[in-house]
Design a binder for these strands. Structure first.
Length: 446
RNA sequence: GAGGCAUUGGUGUAGUGGCAACACAAGAGGUUGUGGUCCUCUUGACAGGGGUUCGAUUCCCCUAUGUCUCCCCA
């Protein structure tokens, strides 16, 4: 990701008045420049190479594992998330962009709830199950922007809905994320996995956790969490809370047999796939809809998760459907792009272009657009600087664009229906008839 | 939502209570229709507003944005 371009903020400014003080210094008129709104970024041409790469790999992976694309609107009813993600979560409590309208609408803060909404709305429950979907699009969270964390950001997500709560799908979702990151040439990946139990055993664990922490001198945030979301106690990074974690009851001691078996299977599938993972009993995720498996993928040493997800067996029901197990995950595109740029900057180089058309004189210029069409039909990638009439600046640009051949088309050539092909690497050139141009260029490019 | 630090051309950096410098990038040239290296020239900035001051890019305050810590997440 490039650094955000700094510009003067758009400020209203009074019209220059000469009355108050005589200007001792010549002042420039006020600037009315805009900048992108806080936490939102332009994706510039120089970054697009990396985005294209990710999109390409997403297409590959999803095709390979049988995920079909779904796009849902960026705007949803607030209730989709209030109910789906959970009213007590940070996302819903303080991070949603509400839209000014008669209805209670928000910019989506995540996409799983939207996908489930669409799954129910379009009767996908009647399709052969499971339904495997993926999405790629912008999400919006009103939080404090920082590196790797924006108010508008993009997620790729994989969702598998409507099968039995079969652990093999948990493994497949993890696998898809892992392979996608690998395909983006990121190595040193760490998969953290955990289970947070189901409706039956999670309350048991919560009680034991409460019991354990009841008289401990924990930080004030944890005092609050103990009421709102006790599982998050395990997430706390405060020193005074850290030391209690060691002896805290672990979820694995509390999980019911079904959940144990489920988790064990997930892990076995991962073993079978030979993808490395780390059991992380403290991995609890902030969204209410998760059950059983949770996971996050990091680059080793980084605190920012590249991907995160888990099973959400109750979400379909919460949003008004029948109990329908499901599992899914999302990847943060900006975070991936940022790492790709760091690790493989050479990926950002422009691909070499075949030819550059240099025109001289008005006749040649006039015929240039048609000539470019011919080249395009011949499958030859061509660059030009039609607006520049000086030959020198055209050739200079050809050099900067890193092209292989320059085609020099002047007054004489335009009359004779010929053109000069110049090899920019060794400065040799020859004149060929126009009708042989495409064939000759192709021959030389081989 | 709380706190710390930062902000100088397109980019990366100097610098100063009194003409803001350098490199790269960009543009135009270096005489006939030939690029790279080289040379010349040009464009272009003190984030915005207010205060102190004879004078503020520099000191102070506010705002905006970035960044870090917390919170949380992708």
């Amino acid at each position: 990701m490039n650094k955000a371009i700094k510009k003067a903020p758009a400020k209203k400014e009074e019209a220059e008045t000469t009355a108050a003080k005589p200007a001792k210094r010549a002042r420039k008129p006020g600037k009315f420049t805009f900048q992108s709104v806080k936490g939102m970024h332009d994706i510039l041409p120089v970054d697009q190479v990396f985005w294209d790469k990710i999109r390409k790999e997403v297409l590959n992976i999803s095709d390979y594992y049988g995920f079909e694309r779904i796009d849902t609107p960026a705007i949803e009813n607030a209730a989709v998330f209030e109910k789906g993600v959970g009213a007590a979560t940070d996302i819903v409590e303080k991070e949603m962009f509400y839209i000014k309208s008669d209805d209670k609408l928000v910019l989506r803060p995540e996409c799983t709830a939207s996908v489930v909404r669409a799954y129910l709305e379009h009767g996908m429950t009647h399709l052969p199950q499971p339904v495997k979907l993926y999405y790629f699009g912008p999400m919006y969270r009103h939080e404090q922007p920082q590196e790797g964390r924006f108010r508008e950001f993009h997620q790729v997500g994989f969702e598998i809905l409507g099968s039995e709560s079969d652990p093999i799908y948990d493994a497949q979702v993890i696998l898809a994320c892992y392979r996608l990151l690998e395909a983006c040439k990121l190595s040193k990946l760490e998969i953290h996995v955990n289970t947070i139990g189901c409706r039956v055993c999670r309350p048991v664990f919560r009680r034991r956790l409460l019991e354990y922490y009841k008289n401990k001198p924990i930080c004030k945030d944890c005092r609050r969490r103990i009421v709102t979301n006790p599982l998050r106690l395990l997430d706390c990074k405060e020193e005074k809370c850290e030391k209690f974690k060691k002896d805290a009851p672990t979820i694995l001691d509390s999980t019911c047999n079904n959940c144990n078996t489920h988790f064990k299977s997930v892990v076995e599938y991962l073993d079978e796939l030979k993808i490395p993972y780390i059991l992380d009993n403290n991995l609890v995720r902030g969204l209410d809809y998760y059950s059983r498996t949770t996971f996050e993928i990091f680059e080793t040493g980084s605190k920012l998760a590249l991907a995160g997800g888990g099973r959400y067996d109750y979400l379909v029901e919460i949003l008004g459907g029948k109990v329908t197990p499901a599992v899914g995950a999302a990847l943060g595109v900006e975070r991936i792009v940022s790492l790709m740029q760091e690790r493989n900057p050479e990926m950002g180089r422009k691909s070499k272009v075949d030819v550059f058309l240099v025109h001289i004189g008005s006749l040649a210029k006039k015929k240039s657009l048609v000539l470019i069409e011919e080249l395009r039909k011949g499958g030859i990638r061509v660059r030009e600087a039609l607006g520049k009439d000086s030959m020198k600046s055209q050739l200079r640009q050809a050099d900067k664009e890193n092209v292989t051949l320059a085609l020099i088309y002047g007054q004489k050539e335009a009359f004779e229906d010929t053109i000069i092909i110049r090899d920019l690497a060794n400065s040799s050139q020859e004149t060929v008839p126009l009708e042989k141009l495409v064939a000759e260029v192709k021959r030389r490019l081989k």
